[in-house]
Amino acid sequence: MIQFVFIAFMVLTLASALVVLLTKNVLYAAFSLLGTFLGVSALYVLAGADFLAVAQILVYVGGVLVLLIFGVMLTNQQGNKSRGRNDITTESSNRVLGVFVMLGFSATLLYTFGRARFLTIQDSLFEAVEPTSTTQTIGVELMTNYVLPFEVSGVLLMAVLIGAAYLSTKTKN
């Protein structure tokens, strides 16, 4: 049962990622990115990282994707008026560079997988281990061992906030 769910969500992730790659319409790409994010968060759940999955939905689907679609809505689409169409399409498709980036990522991933030792799950790869909730562990760790990085990330978020607000007002003059 679990492996069918896993395969279904994997297909969802890969198919919508392919649509992001292949479509020329920016809005279609943004919306199919939603499918990718949802599929990835489901895969997180199946990997036992429940908090990460909820954070993925909260931040990526709820925040970053909204930002992306805002970016599409803020785009001036004067160039497409002549065809009488409403869509925004990309002209650039850097195929060669894309292949190089893909090869680089694949090499890194293969290297990482090669170095990882899957001893405990080797014989039961698709047998689901019943994982426990990780949220409380994360909370305790955040307040004890990682309390300084936690506060430093607060400072980082503040810097991002001020930077974003500053950059977006510069267009006024």
Binding site: V66, L67, G71, M73, L74, G139, L157, A164
Partner: peptide, 24 residues
């Protein structure tokens, strides 16, 4: 609207940190 959305994402991130804290 973009600035408002950016601020929303930042406070969204803060919320992600608040959740595990609130459970313990």
């Amino acid at each position: 609207f973009y600035v408002i959305a950016l601020l929303f994402v930042l406070f969204d991130l803060e919320l992600v940190f608040l959740f595990p804290w609130a459970t313990v």
